[in-house]
């Protein structure tokens, strides 16, 4: 444990970066998932095709490749853009935080697209008909009947997506974001205790995973409270 002396605060700040990355990517994930599922459910052929391409590509290629492409690719694009204005510019760096959150959110968003789509289609059509028969408008039916049923269906798989998301944040160390894995690498340079230090990173992630799992469990309990009393 004494190898960690002096590094605790670095790990703390590193963890904070992970948390920030997680929440930014989470919001973007939900956004991409909603747009993707809406596009998949729409009757517009072009939207269907784009959304299908999106999920096929982002679910079928390694996460690290997407991340590298985003990081190096966006830097090149930005540099090219900057050179239009100032030919002397040599290199513009795209912030790894944003390259990372975008890449991760696009990846997990492709899974969320399928989850949201499935939840939409999974809502018992009888409930929708009952709402219609009672005279609720389309919008009212959507808000008061479909959404409450949908989020209950989406919650368990979405919980898994959040776990994937938190774990994928570790990849961003590869492009130099100063999160926990990156901190560990630096600490190893001084202490030569890689086992201990990487174990600390693992423990931090296990803590995050546990928090997410417990939160999702609580939400599920709340979502299914109407079923508990029955038994």
């Amino acid at each position: 444990m004494e190898v960690l002396t002096g590094w605790w605060d670095d790990f703390f700040w590193g963890s904070l970066v992970v948390v920030k990355l997680f929440f930014v990517a989470l919001i973007l994930t939900v956004l991409f998932g909603l747009i993707g599922s809406a596009a998949k459910l729409s009757k517009n052929r072009v939207a269907n095709a784009i959304a299908n391409g999106y999920t096929i590509v982002f679910r079928g290629t390694p996460e690290i490749l997407v991340l590298l492409l985003f990081y190096f690719g966006s830097a090149i694009a930005l540099t090219a853009l900057a050179q239009v204005f100032d030919p002397d510019v040599k290199f513009v760096d795209f912030p790894p935080f944003w390259a990372g959150s975008l890449a991760i959110a696009l990846i997990i968003g492709s899974y969320a697209t399928e989850t949201f789509r499935g939840a939409f289609l999974g809502v018992d059509s009888g409930q929708i008909e009952a709402a219609r028969a009672l005279g609720l408008s389309n919008l009212q039916t959507f808000i008061y009947v479909r959404i409450p049923a949908m989020w209950r269906l989406a919650l368990p798989p979405f919980g898994n997506h959040m776990l994937s998301l938190i774990k994928d944040t570790a990849l961003v160390a590869i492009i130099g974001l100063e999160e926990t894995l990156f901190v560990a690498e630096q600490a190893i340079g001084y202490t030569a205790k890689p086992f201990t230090l990487y174990l600390v990173v693992g423990a931090i992630y296990l803590g995050f995973s546990t928090i997410i799992t417990l939160t999702v469990m609580l939400c599920e309990k709340y979502a299914n409270r109407h079923l508990e009393i029955a038994k």
Binding site: K167, D168, P194, F195, Y198, G202, L206, S209
Partner: peptide
Amino acid sequence: YIFRGTPILVQIFIIYYGLPQL
């Protein structure tokens, strides 16, 4: 629980860079 709760990249690093410490 442990292997699903931690990033695979960290697992790879622990095994490749970490274990030789022991």
